[in-house]
Simulated assay, not measured.
Amino acid sequence: MTTSVGPLLRSWRERRGISQLELAGRADSSARHISFVETGRSRPSEEMVVRLAERLDVPVRDRNALLLAAGYAPRYPHTPLDAPQMAALREGLERLLAAYEPYPALVVDGTYTVVAANRGIAVLLDGLPEHLLAPPLNAMRITLHPEGLAPRIQNLTEWRGHLLAQMERQVALARSEQLRALYEEVAAYPVEGHSDPMGPTYAADPAASPLALPLRIVHEGQLLSFVSTIATFNTPMDVTVAELAIETLLPADPATAKYLRSLGA
């Protein structure tokens, strides 16, 4: 059944927790007009649909759905990353990842499928079972699976909670059944029997004072500590580009940086 644009816009507005009056102010409109659009008494122009979607921070993929529901053609293409016109983007991402070595960095899409990674990531994945490394790799699955990185993560309880909360926010933001299914899968992974995150074998450096929650992971007997940063593209005009995220793992202490540089050498 086709849904008209009014109820869809109302759903996004309510999801954002703002009133018709507030949305009207953001979109240079009136609360009366917003009300008429939401109830179907007024058909918004194409530009108004785009403006409202922008002010509601609707994901680019869903902006196309709003345009279709209003009777307009989709505005944002969905270009495969391996398409010829994406060559410059792919090359730029590869240069960025290579420049970040020996520190780990990767690029994921909207469902955490890994589309590019550098050798720093390969170091962390060393020794994982083949069924987890078979393409398409999924960053969440590799990290939280009991046969993946989870047993190596010393602060698994904290890190797992952080990742699941991040996914919960994204599921609430984007209407993606694939993302919801992934969340339900990784949230159900068992964590019983995990070692004490502050156990004596890999005690944290007492002098370290992290500015953000660190990822504390063991590699060949060496405790490594990272702070994760995520970058996305500003004002994307393509669904594929809008859903890409570049994650870099910044060494959180000098010992981690020194160890990774020694491996790179």
Rank of each mutant, 00 (worst) to 15 (best):
Y202C: 09
H194D: 12
Y189H: 15
M198G: 15
N155H: 10
A165P: 11
L68P: 01
D57L: 11
P146R: 12
P102R: 07
P206Q: 11
D57T: 12
V60C: 05
L21M: 13
V239F: 00
D57S: 12
R41C: 06
L96D: 07
R119C: 05
V58S: 00
G110N: 03
Y183N: 08
R43A: 07
I142L: 10
E14F: 04
L213N: 06
G17V: 03
R43K: 14
S4A: 13
G71K: 00
A150H: 05
S176H: 05
V186K: 03
D205L: 00
H131R: 10
Y189S: 15
A265G: 10
T229C: 11
V58E: 05
A150Y: 01
A204S: 15
D238I: 07
A70P: 02
Q222G: 02
S262V: 12
G40T: 02
L56A: 04
S11K: 09
R61A: 12
L144K: 00
M1Y: 13
E192C: 10
V218W: 02
R175H: 05
L223H: 06
W159V: 13
L124K: 01
R51G: 09
S35H: 06
G25R: 06
V107H: 07
A116R: 03
R41H: 11
V241W: 06
K258Y: 10
G193H: 09
V107W: 00
E185D: 03
S30D: 05
L215C: 11
L144P: 03
P206L: 11
P146K: 12
L66M: 05
R16G: 11
E147H: 00
L224W: 01
A255H: 09
H78Q: 15
A88N: 03
A165T: 15
M198P: 04
Y103E: 04
F226N: 04
V186W: 00
L132W: 14
M167G: 01
Q20T: 06
D109F: 03
P102I: 09
L52G: 02
E158Y: 12
K258E: 15
P236L: 12
L67K: 04
L128S: 06
E184W: 07
A70E: 02
D196Y: 11
L213Y: 08
P190Y: 06
V108W: 03
D82M: 05
A255S: 14
Q154Y: 08
A242Q: 02
R216L: 12
G221H: 10
S4K: 07
E185A: 01
L66K: 04
K258P: 03
V218K: 02
A257N: 11
Q85P: 00
S45T: 13
R261G: 13
A172F: 06
P206R: 07
L132F: 15
V115S: 08
A172Q: 13
L223K: 06
L93S: 02
Q170H: 08
E147W: 07
